[in-house]
Each structure stands twice: as C-alpha cells, then as structure tokens.
Design a protein around this nucleic acid. Structure first.
Lengths: 212, 212
DNA sequence: CCCTGTGAATTTATTCACAGCA
DNA sequence: TGCTGTGAATAAATTCACAGGG
C-alpha cells in the first residue's frame, strides 16, 4: 500500500463521520451510507479501502469501528485546537454556531482581535485575546488550525505571523489569498461572494448536478 | 465550439473578476492575473478561451472588456437576487458582511425567519420577513439564489418549498443535504465543521499544496 | 447470494509545448 | 519578441465490472 490519498477522499470522510455518529445503527453497507451522504457506494468503498479493509464481505461495516477508524485517519482522536482570528460579526457567529453543536473533535480555544473594546470579553465560553498575544497563544495551546475572519487588509500579515508561529492550516474567510507562497501551509478558502457569483452561472445553465 | 464548460473553470471566474475590479490597470497578461489570484497562467488562458478569444497576442487582455465579459458569462450583468433564510447569528453576520463590501452583482433583497421577535426588524438595510411569505417573496423579487442558515431540522423542508417556488440554486450552511433528489437544483454545500475536520488531516500530513 | 475490495476503463481537470499573430 | 490560444500529454478522480470471501 502506501499510495497517496486523494484530496477529494479526505474531504468526504468528515461527511461519512457525521452520519455514522448520528445513525444509531450497528452496521451499515456502502449503499446505505451512500444514500445518506449523497455519494456513490463505489466511491465510499474506494475511499475507505485506501486506509485498509474495514468491512466484511456480504455484510458491510461495523458502525462503531468504522467511526473510530475515520476519527483516527483524520487525527481527530488526538484533539485539534483552533483559534478564530477576528471577533467581528462573522467570527462571533462562527464561534456561537460551532458551540451549539456538541462536537468536541475540533476545539476552538480562543478568539483574537485588535479592538480594545472586545479584548477580554467572551463569546459563549471563548475568550477574546489581544492580537499582541498571538504567538504566545499558538504556543501555549498548541494551535493546529486558524480560522481567519478579519478584513482583507489585515489577513495577509496576520496569516504570515501565524504560519511563522507554527500554524499550518487555515480556514480563510477573508477575500484575499494568504500564505500562497508557503508550500508547508494548507489554506482552505471560503469566499461567500465568490460562491454566490459562481451560483449565478449555475442558475441560468440549470445543469443537472450537485456539488459537495 | 460549444463544448461543456468545466465546473472548475466557473468557480475560478469570480476570483478573476474580483481582481480585475480592483486592480486599476488598463491591461493585464495571464501571468499577472495568475500571480494575483494564485492560479497558473495556462489555466487562466484556457479558462477564458472556452468563451472566446478576448486577448491580444503579444499584449494581453483589456481589463475593462475582460471584466464585462466575465460578468456576462456569469450572468451577473442581469442582476441576481438572493434571500437569506434564517436570521440567527450566522445569517445576520453574512448579510452584514456582504453589505460591507460594495458589490451589487448579487443582491440580497430579504431575510426570512420564523421567530416573531425578529420578523419585521432590519439587518442593515435588509428586512426580515415571515417564513409564511416565502413563496410570495420568491415570486415578487424573482429570487434566483437562497442562502440557507437555519437548523438542520428545518432546512430540508424549507429548501423543498423554495425549490417548488422556483429557486434552483442554494448556498447551504445547514449540516444536512438538501434537494439531493432534484437534478434541476444546484446546491453548494458549506459546512464549517466538515471543513475543519478535513483540515485536521492536512495539519498532520503537511502536504505541500493549496486549495482554492 | 450479498456486499466488499480492487484493477481496468472512463471521464474530468491540469500542465506542457508550441504555433501564430501583434 | 511576447503573450495568446490550443492540441497533445499527463495527472487526478470517478465509474465500471467483477473476482472472492462470508
């Protein structure tokens, strides 16, 4: 074995995981899981087979064991800690939203802002820290992921600081590319206006397909 | 001509568009545009060539003309109207966020909620309407896009109603697949917890690549 | 016989390489 | 010469098809 795992596979695993966590079944087949998550059964079998043979032929997969397996693959059994940079509308909304879900796989341990009025306040159970403390925070909490919800003007510089401090994974809501020159850093861009503009095309073309 | 346009191409066009709208240049080359947006110059040339030959050999592209062309391709010169369903933390944050950007290509004309306390209030300039008025709203404003920021429990049903009313494009923040049985409906899923879980994998693997 | 696991075929997307026009 | 436009080559992802164990 030991071949490279497709990106696309990794992105589907969390969807499988969520369904497995809420299905209340002992066993599933790739067909059932596919129905529930919207992917084809072959795709699911192929995705899982990259990591080993977890199923039983003629029967299917043990839900509990499969769930553990995916948690392990995604390194969610270690517990990953994240910071949200920017305590504006979007940042606070995300923190509250994630807080509502009882899901402690990825733990948001702090928020960061530069506005003295919000530094020291709390959003749910999460404290807002000063951006001056950024490096210390990353170090103290062993931060793996940073969620960027700040203005484009500030995002590039702060991302650079975070990367220097050892954060190698970003979820970037700022409408600007960050750390694009750093191959050691993984950036997932989420850009609402861009998504909506792309949707505009698909509205008219009415193409018969779904995107995950 | 008249071949099928790759999805991936359509998703890149909005990024080109944004940069063209803010670059303050007369002309660009595919190389410059690539540098700025993080894509390769060949990819940009190929993307644009699907729709015609807009450039001049040895020179590059006329910024203003190219911008118009992309607006037209994405149907953003028509003006597309959107509703945000759910006036909770996330919904209001999104509306404020998009309101801040002066960008009237996709116009958020209303929000919808079922909570009597927020119905009738305003988020920025956008009014919150009752979910009872959903169908009338879609019809009156000729809504093309719906942004779903409501609980999973309600999302499926409301999406179905929207689709019946004629909305064929969704940006779905609810952690549940919607309208998966309707090939005429295009759904772009955005799922924060799933994205973060996938990031967790990439943190450890430190793969040298970027995702757009 | 059912459902997994997997090579092979196909489709989709990206990169290369260069011909051709300003 | 410089940069576009594009066929050809490559790489990535998905679907097919079926062998094989329970």
């Amino acid at each position: 074995m030991q071949q490279r795992i497709p990106d696309a596979t990794i992105r589907r695993l969390p969807a499988y995981l969520r369904w497995l966590s809420t299905c209340n079944l002992e066993r599933v087949t790739s067909g059932i899981l596919g129905q529930a998550t919207g992917f084809s059964s072959e795709q699911i079998r192929k995705d899982l087979a990259y990591f080993g043979a977890f199923g039983t032929r003629g029967v299917g997969y043990e839900v509990k064991a499969l769930r553990q397996e995916i948690l392990h693959i995604l390194q969610l059994d270690h517990g990953v800690r994240a910071v949200v940079i920017g305590a504006g509308h979007l940042g606070t909304a995300l923190v509250r939203y994630v807080g509502q879900l009882h899901q402690r796989d990825v733990d948001i341990v702090a928020m960061v802002d530069n506005n003295p009025d919000v530094i020291g306040t709390k959003v749910g159970t999460v404290r807002v820290e000063s951006v001056d403390q950024l490096e210390r925070l990353v170090d103290d909490y062993d931060i793996g992921i940073a969620v960027l919800t700040l203005p484009a003007s500030a995002a590039v510089e702060v991302a650079e600081r975070l990367a220097d401090a050892g954060v190698h994974a970003f979820l970037n809501f700022a409408p600007v590319p960050v750390c694009s020159k750093r191959p050691d850093v993984f950036v997932q861009q989420i850009d609402l206006t861009l998504e909506m503009q792309a949707l505009s095309y698909f509205v008219q073309s009415r193409q018969p397909h779904h995107v995950k």
